[in-house]
């Protein structure tokens, strides 16, 4: 039933293999530190709360829209400046802003909707899942294990799914 996998339908296997040249240990600690700041922001802005996600999907508060909207605005302005001044990394390397894979549009439409169903049920997307575990909601480890199972199953069905 499924169309055979061809080069045009199969997405790149790993999407995060950007060339990087930071020292390995430094890279590890720097990204750990950035993640730590990110986890604090997610928690204190309350976007990791199931209650806030419910509020958003019921259109009953501006909070989540304000967070996501202002994050996109700052991100967009930053990318504009990075391109405009041809910024380089702190080590002087190239900065590449890679395009997201579109496939034939199927993967983003169907995958996005399935993700949204999960987001609505758990009230947590991937960043918040990690932050919630850190906040002591140990039962979120079950959500994390289920998400890893979902990723594993996707990886094994990938060649049979339309992208």
């Amino acid at each position: 039933m499924n169309p055979p996998a061809t080069d045009a339908t199969v997405a790149p296997t790993v999407e995060t293999g950007a060339p990087a040249d930071l020292d390995r240990e430094l890279s590890w600690f720097a990204h750990l530190a950035m993640g730590t700041v990110f986890g604090v922001i997610l928690t204190k802005t309350q976007v990791i709360s199931w209650f806030r996600i419910q509020e958003m999907f019921r259109f009953q508060s501006f909070h989540m829209y304000g967070v996501i909207g202002s994050a996109i605005a700052v991100g967009a302005l930053s990318l504009y400046i990075i391109r405009r001044i041809r910024a380089r990394t702190i080590k002087g390397g190239d900065i590449e802003i890679p395009p997201k894979d579109f496939g034939r549009g199927f993967r983003v439409a169907v995958g996005g909707t399935l993700f949204g169903l999960g987001w609505g049920l758990t009230g947590a997307c991937p960043g918040p899942i990690f932050a919630l575990v850190g906040n002591g909601l140990t039962v979120m480890l079950v959500v994390l294990a289920s998400a890893l199972t979902g990723t594993w199953v996707y990886g094994h069905l990938r060649d049979t799914l339309p992208h």
Partner: peptide, 14 residues
């Protein structure tokens, strides 16, 4: 179920 969909859907969507 929700966790599974988050992991499956996020990687399917890229």
């Amino acid at each position: 179920g929700g966790g599974f969909l988050v992991g499956f859907g996020a990687r399917y969507a890229g």
